[in-house]
Amino acid sequence: MKHIYTGKTKDVYALADGNYLLKFKDDVTGEDGKFDPGANTVGLTIEGAGRAGLKVTKFFFEILNARDIPTHYIDANIEDATMTVKPATAFGKGLEVICRYRAVGSFLRRYGMYAEEGQQLDAFVEVTLKDDLRQDPPISEDALDMLGILSKEEYKILKALTQKIGTIIKEELEKKDIELYDIKFEFGRIGADGQIALIDEISGGNMRAYKNGQYIEPLELEKLMLEA
């Protein structure tokens, strides 16, 4: 096993069989000691956050794989806080894709002249560049195509997958009376044909979810979702 990359919330290792191992850490993104799924810096460390994030990730990826939605997920070891995944190629230097159901966070900061806090949105898809230096700027379909990051045909696939996956996760949360406000995904190309697939993780650290109007912290989300 060879160490490849040290990330904010996960470390990446190459395995001898060509797959990769993701090691989940207890670091979460945020600012000033407060968790924020949209932040591009590590804000705090929460004991148990890595395993909690992996449990939720495993739960959702197994649902997606059972529905034949393309992902990089192979399996997970909760005790070791590791996930085995297929190799994937990023779009450019990496994209983040947000599916929004309510106006909060950076959407509200940008569009607050027109949007009210908590206003319902119709699975609005937003793509941003993974670029800490420029604070992850949003990018349009045309710009993605012109800059050679993602073709317009690929964008259509990406958007459709984002909304389909977002709906599945939203419906699963609703079974526990939890409302999904927004969720952040990452996609890449897998396999010889470069199929667009969901990569990275699907956890409380990637979403804003509320129950009875109260925000749910990542560790609490894992308990609500997975405990009987």
Rank of each mutant, 00 (worst) to 15 (best):
M1S: 15
I4V: 15
T6W: 07
G7R: 07
K10T: 09
L15F: 04
A16N: 15
A16C: 09
D17C: 07
D17N: 07
L21G: 07
K25C: 03
K25P: 03
D27V: 11
K34P: 03
F35C: 10
D36G: 10
T41A: 15
E47F: 11
G53I: 06
G53K: 05
G53W: 09
L54T: 04
K55P: 02
K58H: 13
F59K: 07
F60P: 00
F60Y: 06
L64C: 06
N65Q: 12
R67W: 05
I69K: 13
T71M: 12
Y73R: 12
Y73V: 11
I74V: 15
I74F: 03
D75H: 04
A76M: 02
D80V: 11
M83G: 04
V85A: 09
A88C: 10
L95C: 00
L95W: 11
R102H: 12
S106V: 07
F107T: 14
F107R: 12
L108P: 05
L108Q: 06
R110C: 09
G112E: 05
Y114K: 15
Q119P: 07
A123S: 14
E126F: 06
L129H: 11
L129C: 08
K130W: 09
K130H: 09
D132L: 11
D132M: 12
Q135N: 15
A143F: 12
D145Y: 15
L147K: 13
L147T: 14
I149M: 14
K152S: 15
E154S: 04
E154D: 12
K156A: 14
I157Q: 14
L158A: 01
K159N: 10
K164R: 14
T167Q: 13
I168G: 00
E172Q: 13
L173Q: 03
D177P: 05
D182H: 08
I183Y: 02
I183G: 00
I183C: 01
R189E: 08
I190V: 15
G191H: 03
G191L: 04
A192N: 12
Q195N: 01
I196Q: 04
I199L: 05
E201W: 00
S203Q: 06
G204T: 04
N206K: 02
M207H: 01
A209N: 01
Y215T: 14
I216K: 00
E217P: 08
P218T: 12
L219F: 09
L219D: 03
L221D: 00
E222G: 07
K223N: 06
L224M: 15
M225P: 01
